[in-house]
Simulated assay, not measured.
Amino acid sequence: MTKVLIATDKPFAAVAVQGIREIMEAAGFELALLEKYTEKAQLLDAVKDVDAIIIRSDIIDAEVLEAAKNLKIVVRAGAGYDNVDLDAATAHNVCVMNTPGQNANAVAELVFGMLVYSIRNHFNGTSGTELLTKKLGILAYGNVGRNVARIAKGFGMKVYAYDAFCPAAIIENDGVKALGSTEELFEKCQVVSLHIPATPETKNSINFDLMSKMPKGATIVNTARKEVVDEAGLVKMFEERPDFVYLTDIKPSNDAELAEKYGARYFGTPKKMGAQTAEANINAGIAAAKQIVEFIANGVRKYQVNK
């Protein structure tokens, strides 16, 4: 019998686990749970006889893959998958998938939750500003970026986007102005929302030279990955641009320093919050379960992210 493991340091909601269980039982699969584990050894022991694993932010590295002799597929319930060693997975003939789009609205709503909190001065009783007519730039027009655009138009913002891999016609068809480069996006927009993955090309790509191109009243919202922002450049930006604001749900390494020195212009959530809604939690878990069944039963690899 095919055995599927849910390995989650931060567990799914109970209703999501129940939904996953129903899907697995209907397919004739066995479901095992490893929740709130505290040591890697627990994970290594749990994967020994499983055919498939569903994870959230849990680390699947070469050691885990070596321990999981029967493993055929890992599904990361969420969009990002840099917590999985893709090269090691490929070497072990393991398919890795994500569940794109399942938490996109949750992340997009968080962008605007942080923006409104910021422009209204953390609700401290003083007069703030409004998003209406402000220029918003979206860097990477994937599932989250498209939801950000949709919500931004509801606020009456002027919306721009740049994505090296998305045709301008698709962006323009959504009523969003497509720009020709990252530099142009930063030069034009007072607010930039980051939705790029952490890759060798993007890590530290949001540097001082790029950020300093932004017009007066510059705000960057990062719900992508902390590695894409150059932290030394971020500090320099705070020092040289008293109008600069940085909002994120992935705390930088120098979070305490930024909060102490620039608390009025900096906000970082206590932990990664983008997908932390009941709906996203359930959607991603159910999608992961369905993808495993389709892969095991029919060989479907639609959302595979490794080669």
Rank of each mutant, 00 (worst) to 15 (best):
D163A: 08
I53K: 08
V221T: 06
E63I: 11
A275R: 06
A32N: 13
Y160N: 10
L131K: 06
R56L: 03
I286N: 01
S127N: 13
A106W: 06
K188R: 15
K135G: 07
E172A: 14
K135W: 04
A13P: 11
F165H: 14
K135D: 07
I292E: 06
F12P: 04
G285I: 00
A198D: 03
K216I: 15
E257H: 14
F238A: 15
A224T: 02
C166E: 10
R241L: 08
K307E: 14
A27C: 04
L86K: 03
V221D: 04
R56E: 04
I53V: 12
M97Y: 03
K272E: 15
T38H: 12
D82H: 06
A224H: 02
Q102M: 12
K251G: 12
D209P: 12
Y117G: 10
G233V: 07
V293P: 11
G217C: 11
L210W: 05
I119H: 08
Y262K: 11
M114H: 05
L44E: 06
I55L: 03
A280T: 01
D61V: 11
L136H: 10
A16S: 08
A280E: 00
G142Y: 01
P11E: 07
I20F: 01
G28M: 03
K3D: 01
M273A: 13
V75D: 05
L44V: 09
A264E: 15
H92Q: 15
I53M: 13
Y81K: 07
V96N: 01
S205Q: 09
A287P: 04
E184P: 08
V176A: 05
A108D: 00
E239T: 12
G125M: 09
E294L: 15
E109F: 07
S118V: 10
L132D: 13
E22R: 13
F238K: 12
A89K: 07
D45W: 09
K226I: 15
A256W: 12
E184N: 14
I170Q: 12
I60V: 12
L194N: 05
V111H: 04
K236W: 01
V96T: 05
V107L: 09
V64F: 01
I119R: 10
A41M: 13
I250A: 11
G128Y: 08
K135T: 07
I54S: 04
R241Y: 00
S205N: 07
G285T: 00
K158Q: 15
V116H: 01
V17R: 11
E201I: 08
T90N: 10
L115T: 00
N147Y: 10
S212E: 12
P215K: 02
K153F: 09
G113D: 07
L194T: 04
T129F: 11
N306M: 02
A297M: 15
A149V: 03
L247H: 03
K302N: 14
V228P: 03
A16N: 02
A297C: 10
A27G: 01
A104Q: 00
V84L: 03
A284I: 09
D49C: 09
D49H: 06
I206T: 04
F123R: 13
F186R: 05
D51P: 05
A287C: 14
